[in-house]
Design a protein around this nucleic acid. Structure first.
Length: 135
DNA sequence: GCCAACGTTGGC
DNA sequence: GCCAACGTTGGC
């Protein structure tokens, strides 16, 4: 089982919208590194849901409900989507500044590869973030 | 196959 | 709104 982090701009697709939908497919990925991460996801994997631009914080946890398949929003077969369903909101959202302030998280992709929209999270990082969220 | 130009993302 | 980082494109 692996851990991930997926980014969304709240004005495009927010956590609240995600919860209201109960399930969504993660479309719009047009970057090969992010695409490869989508393809590596297995059903049951967990992902942090991150709000970029506004909020700039990790707000909740999502679970992979269905593994990758052709992106229905394009006919180009290079692109795929993954279905996610919401698991729960974090007790306290973890802002990027908090992640940056923790030396244990200095190597997180969120910091090192800040523009990557779908990124892996290690088990250690996962636990530390949960701790920072007050869980 | 190199690299400059350009476009996009995303933090601040 | 600015700008740094970085991915992609296209000329050679």
């Amino acid at each position: 089982m692996s851990f991930w982090l997926i980014k969304s701009e709240p004005f495009k697709y927010s956590w609240d919208q995600f919860v209201a939908d109960k399930k969504t497919y993660w479309d719009g990925v047009r970057n090969y590194a992010a695409r490869n991460n989508l393809k590596a996801m297995k059903k049951g994997d967990l992902a942090f849901f991150y709000h970029s631009n506004e909020g700039v914080e990790i707000v909740g946890i999502a679970e992979v409900a269905k593994e990758f398949y052709q992106d229905p929003t394009t006919t180009e077969d290079a692109w795929v989507v993954v279905d996610f369903k919401p698991v729960r909101k974090l007790k306290n959202p973890v802002p990027l500044a908090r992640v940056k302030a923790d030396p244990r998280l200095a190597n997180m992709a969120l910091i090192k590869l800040s523009r990557l929209s779908v990124q892996p999270v290690t088990a250690e990082e996962w636990d530390i973030i949960l701790e920072l969220a007050g869980e």
